[in-house]
């Protein structure tokens, strides 16, 4: 997984960086690229988190977990380990 991230981050042709949704800082936005977990992917997609959708890291709970994101006009909370399976691109 780390290796994949490394190569993705080596994409010099554009300023687009891929990182995990869990790595977004509060207030930071990203565009969903893909998922590394099949079941979480299905659950999140039906809630409106589809590739191409912009998500905004709204807040992180006091103990660093879970986190709340803004997607498709509403607030969604998910655990950190769930957010780690979502890859987003940031500008």
């Amino acid at each position: 997984m780390l290796g994949v991230a490394y190569f993705r981050n080596l994409n010099f042709n554009s300023a687009v960086l891929e990182k995990k949704l869990s790595e977004l800082k509060p207030g930071e936005a990203g565009v969903i690229q893909n998922f590394s977990d099949e079941e979480i992917k299905l659950k999140l997609m039906e809630m409106g988190c589809i590739p191409g959708e912009t998500v905004l890291m709204e807040r992180v709970a006091p103990l660093g977990d879970p986190m709340a994101i803004k997607v498709a006009g509403y607030q969604l909370s998910l655990r950190k380990n769930e957010a780690e399976t979502v890859w987003v691109s940031t500008l």
């Binding site: 979480i40 509403y74 607030q75 909370s77 655990r79 769930e82």
Partner: peptide, 11 residues
């Protein structure tokens, strides 16, 4: 089954 904590925070 797998545990999820994916839920809406309603307005």
């Amino acid at each position: 089954q797998r545990d999820f904590f994916i839920m809406e925070l309603p307005v």
